Each structure stands twice: as structure tokens, then as C-alpha cells.
Amino acid sequence: MKIMIDAGHGPNTAGKRSPDGSLREFQFTSAVAEYLEEELNNYQGVQTSFSHDASRRIDVPLIERTNRANAWKADLFISIHANAYTGRWHTGGGIETYVYTTRPKEALELANKVQNELIKATGLRNRGVKSADFHVLRESNMTAILTECGFYDNKEELALLKKDSYRRKCADAICKGIVDMYNLKRKQMVKSANTSTPSKTGEYKVQKTIGGYITAADAKAKRNKKTNVTKGSYYVYKRASGMINVTKKKGVPGSWINPADNKQQSTTKTFKVRVKSYELWYYNKPDWNAKKDTFKRGQEFTVVETLTVNGSKMYKLSNGNYITANPQYVQKL
């Protein structure tokens, strides 16, 4: 099953923020999207992708989002939003889920399951399942729903939308609705005795101090580092997207790590990188003003040299061009 996850709006969308400016809608939606991806990847036969820019740098137009989902031949489109009434503080609130105006049978059934799980998890007012002529519901060729997970112009609900625990609740609830609808089965975790992977007893040995992250997606992208995970033995709490959550207290969530960080660095001078962001500028010389064109997400290149330009690292590629070395935008393979 191919599931396209859509974090509503983007980091630069005008409006789409709380009246006091303390929260942009995309801050909430992108976090929930990553938690949802993390949960869905624990199920058999599930593939996930983002319609928005995973690097959180640019706004992706609605038409590009649905075009991408249609080209990928997604089976499901899940659009995540937070709500606003007037843009001024008010006391109304709650959660609602949308389907297209024709109220397709499968979408309506899924929307009801997701809506019920969201209300059960959050305890907020049930505003019900509604229909609307939203672009992502109209132009997507697959079953599509859109969730509104609370109002950011309601002070009480804004406080919730800012909390990591609430974002996880929303992601878990959406996942539960999807799992129930399609009878998805959890993957059986295969454990190995190798010290660089979880052992048969669910332990993991960290060889050196490495970064610890809030989510599996953050660990994979090496962004939003929250702590250092020092050398030693840990319990494995969970695995997702090739990342591992390690903890000193068995059964209690810890920090997400990237197993690649736990390996000895290669002595080879050249290495491969993959573009992570939706688009990435490249340069015809080691100069941040020498923009030439853009590469697309997924393209891979060989790095022949790493250099520092005006305080920031840059990679020289084997094709003679240059790109940023920021791990937020490129992944070292």
C-alpha cells in the first residue's frame, strides 16, 4: 500500500499562523506527518512518501502535491492540517475530518475511523466528518481525506498544538484509523546478535558518542538533534525507517539514532551523496552566489572534495559542480 502523507501548507505560507505568531501551521503539520510516517513504516507492505518538502524549506504548490501523488500511483492521500476560524482568538474548537463533496464510500469510511480515533486520543470536541471541494481531495486520483486537528486561534488548543506529546497522539490516532480500515499487520522485528544491530536480547551497543534525535525522520535527516548518545549498551525501544530508538530504561522511549553514525568513518576520499530536499541549488564554482541550476530529490552524486566557503561546508562533485554539504539537504551514502 502506497500512502502519500501531506503536511498542510508550508513554512512560508502567508497567514496560517496563530494570532500571536507563536506557531505556524506547518510547524505542527510537518511534525505530525513525520510521526505518522514513523508509525506507518512499522506495518507490512506499506510504503510512504511526503507530498510537501521534507527539508521544511520551501512551500510546495497544491498542484505539485497531487501531481506527485498521482504519478506515484498512491493508494491513499492523507492531508494533515490545523484549523483557524477568524484568525482572532475565540473559544470554539475541536477536530473535524473532510472528504470530497461526492463523499466517496471508501474515503467516508476511512474519515469516520480516523475522526473517531482522533477524538478518542485527544478528548477534544467532535466536529464530525464533513465534505469540501478542497484541491487535494478533488485532484487526487486515490482515496483522500483531510484532517483538521484543532484550532490555533483558540488559546487552549494552540497550547496543545505546540506540544510534542499532542502531535504524537494525532499521528498515532490517524495511523490507528488507517490500520483498522485496511487491516494492516505489524512487521515482525528481526533481531541480530551483531553489535552494530539490536541483539537477541533487544540490546544495542553504541561504539562512540553520536547524535540523538526526537523522531526517526529527524535521525535519518540528521536534523533537530536533542542530545548526545554516549558510548555504551542500550535497550532497543523501537525501530522505524532503518533508525533505532535506544534507551537506558527498558520499555521507556529514549532517543532516535542513525545506525550509520555508529560505524567507523570510511578512509576513502570520495563518497556518494543523495539529494534529500525537493530541489537543491548547485553552483559552477565554490561561491554561494554562483547558482547555476537545481538538482531534484533522489539524484545521487560522487563527492571528490569537501571545502569551507564563507564559514559553511560545500561539496565538490565529480561532475565539476558544487553543492551544500548541509545534512539537512543532502544525505551521505
Results as ranks from 00 to 15, higher is better:
167 R>L: 09
167 R>K: 15
172 D>V: 11
177 G>E: 00
179 V>Y: 02
180 D>Q: 14
186 R>T: 07
187 K>M: 03
192 S>A: 10
192 S>P: 07
198 P>T: 12
200 K>Y: 14
201 T>E: 13
202 G>T: 07
202 G>L: 00
202 G>M: 00
204 Y>Q: 00
205 K>W: 09
205 K>Q: 11
206 V>F: 03
210 I>L: 08
213 Y>A: 03
217 A>L: 05
219 A>F: 03
221 A>P: 00
221 A>D: 05
222 K>E: 15
224 N>K: 13
228 N>T: 14
228 N>K: 13
230 T>I: 15
232 G>R: 10
233 S>G: 11
234 Y>N: 05
235 Y>I: 07
237 Y>F: 15
237 Y>P: 07
240 A>V: 09
243 M>F: 08
244 I>N: 02
245 N>E: 05
247 T>V: 04
248 K>H: 08
248 K>Y: 06
251 G>A: 03
251 G>E: 06
252 V>D: 05
252 V>T: 06
253 P>C: 02
255 S>R: 05
259 P>C: 02
260 A>V: 07
263 K>Q: 13
264 Q>Y: 11
268 T>P: 00
272 K>E: 11
274 R>M: 14
275 V>Q: 01
276 K>S: 14
278 Y>T: 11
280 L>I: 03
280 L>C: 04
281 W>Y: 15
288 W>S: 06
